[in-house]
Design a protein around this nucleic acid. Structure first.
Length: 587
DNA sequence: GCCGTTTTCGGCCCGACTGTTTTCAGTCG
């Protein structure tokens, strides 16, 4: 469990106690809102706490700042501990079961005196097998059957899946939906549409004149394992692969409202509804209620405009200030995939003793794919020859041979109109060593058109050490680009710690470029740091880090991610034509 | 407990679905 999940869980538990012991639903909601906000953060909340910016998280106010301060400095909150004693603590474990919330978990834990969080789930299983849950009011045959079902699929929380995986799974389902003549439109919504790097559940909406029949068709999808919830408008299923899918059906007349509602985020919608209430309007998935009359919207644009707001792209709907921008008509024009004119982080199949993996496709195949994507230029940036065990003269020879190999390949297809990518740059991705020096000598570096410097080792240095290390590497005149800056790997490795303010200021002053690595397993810079870089005027480049020609198509993921970070065309240097790109990179 | 373009008090997003209920509570997103 991440620190954010853990913190959110704590807040949810405290919320439950306020509801159960005091019936205080408003304080309950306040704690739940805070929990949701924490759960949705894209950065570890402990980092925000370290920076003293907890109060910038929506839903966290003065009181919670002080409680969380105590939590992060001592590991506990005395106030929380004392109020949590009011209930049998086994209920907190039961709350993790789907379908069991504060009220039901309290009833069960109270009746059977489940005081131990660690054994509460197994205790409940025993109670169920003895058939004793009937003793608790409100539990009868159906609810007990559902509880047993939930318990069977109750496991430790698995990782959220990557956006790329989720899009594929959703895509298959949508292909199935489109086969029905009843269904005119079907789209992925929720976090999938907002293009979050990771996805929990998949949301799919479809449009039909016959809600009931089209939902029946949707529930016949062959890959469904179980139907969890079934209505005409909303259903939830679990697929054979264990992934949950939420299905929503709508009429064409209110498609816009439905898209808006189920795209979320939850916090964006809550904020939007509060804003609407101030104007005497009430929002829902059916439209906008004004003086008892409901207005319906076929498009999201008309929905937002009715509220006096500028259209907000889904990637920005995270309650990070987008509604204020929209009110003052200052939503930025975000970079688009079609703005991209090249990719400078591609690995070729040239074989040599390399420090890391080389690519799997020859340049001709890379060029073929690049021209399909309409690129004007590409840059090959293989990893540097391994640092130890090779003589300097050998490294220089490798670099010379590589250039020859790539240039020959390029020449061979130069006349092929189909493979017409006008410019080829031959660069390298060079390791930043723990002390900030580069893993390649100056004489070897001079053989390259450009250099991307990246961290591939010693990830757990201190903030100060990493900051020094990165600035040191970027200080080399040959280094123009910082590759996958935080070196995070989604679900696998946390971002390194560094003083990004300081690094970004250095980049701005010295014309250094930050990479937005488009690999779905990295998406690095993270979106909040992209937003920071944009605000500081630091330039960025979206690169795929392709190790095969196919991966050039990952550019889309990088662009989506850049958009989540409020990046405009002018913030991204590979939207420039080659002439201007050369100037920026001082080639 | 949070929050503010009717601000420091007095409100607090909206609706679907389910089960156990005779009109609603709980849970979820």
């Amino acid at each position: 469990m991440t620190i954010n999940q853990k913190t959110a869980q704590l807040l949810k538990r405290v919320a439950a106690v306020f509801w159960i012991s005091e019936g205080d639903t408003f304080r309950y909601r306040a704690y739940i809102n805070a929990a949701v906000a924490v759960d949705n953060l894209t950065v570890p909340i402990a980092d925000i706490w370290e920076q003293g910016k907890l109060d910038s998280v929506p839903g966290i106010g003065e009181k919670l700042v002080s409680y969380l301060d105590e939590y992060f400095s001592t590991g506990k909150v005395r106030h929380f501990d004392s109020i949590m004693k009011r209930v049998p603590s086994g209920m907190f474990s039961l709350m993790e079961i789907r379908g069991i919330g504060p009220a039901k978990s309290y009833k069960i834990a109270n009746k059977f005196q489940l005081d131990n969080q660690d054994t509460a789930i197994s205790d409940l299983k025993k109670i169920l097998s003895k058939g004793e849950l009937f003793k608790v009011a409100g539990f009868k045959e159906k609810s007990i059957r559902n509880l047993k079902k939930s318990l069977r699929s109750h496991k430790t929380k698995s990782n959220r899946m990557l956006l790329a995986q989720a899009l594929e799974i959703a895509g298959e389902y949508i292909t199935y939906l489109h086969k029905s003549p009843l269904i005119s439109k079907a789209e992925p919504l929720g976090s999938l549409r907002r293009k979050l790097p990771t996805i929990g559940d998949i949301d799919i909406a479809f449009c039909s004149h016959n809600s009931r029949e089209s939902m029946q068709y949707a529930l016949k999808y062959p890959k469904i394992k179980t139907v969890i919830l079934k209505g005409d408008k909303v259903a939830r299923v679990r697929l054979e692969n264990g992934i949950s899918v939420d299905l929503k059906s709508s009429d064409v007349k209110m498609w816009g409202s439905l898209l808006q509602h189920y795209t979320g985020s939850k916090l964006h919608n809550i904020q939007l509804r509060k804003y609407a209430l101030e104007k005497g309007l009430s929002l829902s998935e059916y439209g906008i209620k004004k003086d008892g009359k409901i207005y319906r919207f076929k498009t999201e644009l008309s929905f937002y405009n009715f509220l006096g707001l500028e259209y907000i792209p889904p990637e920005l709907r995270e309650s990070t200030g987008e509604i204020e921008l929209s009110r003052s008509k200052k939503i930025p024009k975000l970079v688009k995939l079609s703005d991209i004119r090249g990719d400078l982080h591609i690995h070729s199949d040239f074989v040599y003793p390399s420090s890391h993996d080389h690519g799997s496709n020859p340049l001709t195949e890379i060029l073929n794919q690049a021209s399909l994507q309409g690129y004007e230029y590409i840059g090959i940036s293989d990893h540097n020859p391994k640092f130890q065990g090779l003589k300097e003269s050998k490294k220089v020879e490798i670099l010379k041979n590589r250039r020859k190999y790539l240039e020959n390949e390029y020449k061979e297809c130069e006349n092929d109109v189909k493979l017409r990518v006008k410019y080829l740059l031959i660069g390298m991705e060079v390791d930043i060593r723990p002390d900030g020096s580069l893993a390649l000598s100056d004489s070897a570096l001079s053989l390259l058109d450009y250099v991307i410097a990246s961290i591939h080792s010693s990830f757990d240095l201190t903030i100060e050490a990493n900051t020094r290390r990165i600035i040191n590497a970027l200080s080399h005149p040959k280094v123009k680009i910082l590759g996958h800056p935080t070196s995070r790997e989604i679900n696998k490795r946390e971002s390194i710690k560094a003083d990004w303010d300081k690094i970004f200021d250095f980049c701005f002053k010295n014309n250094k470029i930050l990479e937005i690595n488009a690999s779905p397993t990295r998406l690095d810079l993270p979106d909040d740091l992209i937003q920071k870089a944009v605000s500081k005027g630091v330039k960025m480049i979206v690169n795929t880090d392709s190790h095969s020609s196919e991966q050039l198509q990952n550019m889309q993921y990088g662009v989506w991610h850049a958009r989540r970070g409020y990046a405009k065309k002018k913030d991204i240097i590979n939207t420039l034509d080659f002439k201007n790109l050369r100037q920026v990179l001082e080639l």
